[in-house]
């Protein structure tokens, strides 16, 4: 009996060791951090202020009580043109990140084991695409218990912003823009797909990933640009509660323009 045990434990140890050394071979690269910094024009975004310190393009004052969005399918491009893709798991346990202004830790995405090199641009998706939703129940950042799941028209809310404005005629002067809608159907081109995938260049700069370096890419999301962009110039005075794919189609057109890479911390 004892013998069997020791053989077993040796075998188990062996498995452990080989797993470890495997890891080391794979981790020749290093780490890169994507930091999401949410701002309102030139001010830093502060949630739940008692006053309404911000103003949109229509001179309507507002505050923000909730801002959250899904970032996924991250790709990094190196100087030499090679692309690193952050792995996505079909059950949502990897590759999907929920950025929540109220949760400081969520605002940094740490990508590990990236091949060394100088990176010059990042591509990502805001939202949760059909290939993922069609896989069924999800976990991790995509756990529907996180409250960003539309039950009656199933799918995720990609980006949600809520707040108040005196200009808003809804109950409690509350506005809410919940951008979602991922469905595509070759037989019905009326389904709205608000998935946005875009590339942000580091504008001549580069993020050097190497053993002793942990570069941070500082990405800014500007709430004012989300309210005013190529898609729409939002006034809180009308239609300020939007909870369907079509209702948010125009404002979703502003998403790409609201993100920019501001600067890179080399280490």
């Amino acid at each position: 009996m004892k013998k069997i045990f020791s053989i077993l434990s040796i075998a188990i140890l062996f498995v452990f060791f080989s797993a470890c050394s495997d890891d080391e071979v794979g981790s020749s690269g290093s780490t890169l951090v994507l930091e999401f910094d949410n701002v309102v024009g030139t001010s830093n975004l502060v949630l739940n202020t008692t006053d309404q310190p911000y103003t949109n393009d229509h001179e309507e004052a507002f505050n923000v009580t909730w801002l959250t969005y899904y970032v996924s399918n991250i790709k990094l491009k190196r100087e030499d043109g090679t692309i690193y893709e952050d792995a996505v798991k079909s059950d949502g346990s990897a590759g999907y990140y929920l950025i929540d202004e109220a949760d400081v830790e969520s605002r940094e995405i740490t990508l590990k084991n990236i091949p060394a090199g100088n990176y010059t641009e990042v591509t990502f998706t805001i939202g949760v695409d059909a290939s993922q939703v069609d896989q069924g129940a999800q976990t991790g950042a995509l756990d529907p218990a996180k409250g960003l799941f539309w039950t009656w028209n199933s799918g995720y809310i990609f980006m949600a912003i809520q707040g108040t404005s005196p200009a808003c005629t809804e109950e409690g002067n509350e506005f809410a823009y919940h951008v979602g809608g991922y469905k595509e159907d070759p037989e019905n081109d009326n389904l709205i797909n608000n998935i946005k995938t875009f590339t942000l260049s580091f504008k001549g700069d580069s993020a050097p990933v190497k053993a002793s370096h942990e570069p941070q890419v500082h990405i800014i999301f500007d709430v004012l640009k989300f309210f005013k962009g190529t898609g729409a110039n939002i006034s809180f005075a009308s239609n300020a509660q939007r909870h369907t794919p079509k209702a948010c189609e125009d404002i979703a057109g502003n998403i790409e323009g609201a993100f920019v890479v501001d600067h890179i911390h080399a280490d």
Binding site: D134, G136, P144, G147, T151, W152, N153, H243
Partner: peptide
């Protein structure tokens, strides 16, 4: 409105058009 069987029960469980943390409460 629902495209995958897995998501059907969420609606019944929460009974709101948009769910709050109630699914979490069930868990």
């Amino acid at each position: 409105g629902v495209k995958h069987l897995d998501f059907v029960p969420i609606n019944a469980v929460t009974s709101k058009i948009e769910m709050a943390e109630t699914l979490d409460q069930v868990v």
